[in-house]
Amino acid sequence: MLSFIVRRLLIAIPTLLAIITVCFFLMRVAPGGPFDAEAPVPPEILANMRAAYNLDKPLVQQYADYMLNLARGDFGPSFKYKDFTVTELIGQGFPVSAQNGLAALVLAVLIGVPLGIFAALKQNTAADYTVMGFAMTGIVVPSFVMAPVLILIFAIGLKGTPFQLPAGTWEGGAFEHRILPVFCLSLVYIAYLARITRASMIEALRQNYVRTARAKGLPFRTVVVRHALKTALIPVVTFLGPGIAFMLTGSMVIETIFQLPGVGRYFVQGALNRDYTLVMGVTILSASLIITMNIIVDVLYGLLDPRVRYE
């Protein structure tokens, strides 16, 4: 098992290098440059700016410089947020996104998985259809619709009542300022988890060994929790692996709507501004997270099913 993890970590290095390389050149191939959006500047100043950010050199030279700096842990300066390095921007934004993502993850697992089990046990009844109806709504309604609706209800509609919640403010991360964005972020995951858990639980309950467990006279609750649940959780873990990586790196839509100082908004803003170094930084962050989560998922498979062997 340990050698399996070490091997997977070693394979992760070339994977990450390939991602960085492809991303680096793709960004440069995209038309435009980091200084296009601003008011026209005299060509001499533009040349100076390009020289200052190392953009006047041949592309291969730039790539080599970037990789060398990266090896020293230097992600370079942001082109757009001029007084900040990429490391500083991510260092400020990532904790915010990660905390919210973690809270949303806990919420999603605590609500989504039990809902899915409940629906599976009540398969094809009104209760099942109700839960799955809500889950379907959670999946099809995009967060840029869900977030304003939640704001309309909780920040505006319930104004003056004890249920009023602030929106669009951060206040250093005070609890009540996090409720709406975290809830909004978790909704879609609650919905997915409920659907996945329901499907895999129904499948698990059909297994012959569940029938054996019932023939042993075990209470149905024990049959479900002890005999069926572990098998049913395998697809859930598969989904949550990359899911956690996406949750921790924040959502552009939710961070923009709720005005959160997270890292999610950098993904899109960085790309639109051709802020090469920032895009590279967030790409490396999310790629590393996804690779790590996938290794963790593979290890979890072995804990859920002893037939899985690490070789």
Binding site: N208, T212, A213, R226, K230, D305
Partner: peptide, 8 residues
Amino acid sequence: MTSLTPHM
């Protein structure tokens, strides 16, 4: 083959 719980 399938009537025993695989993870117990």
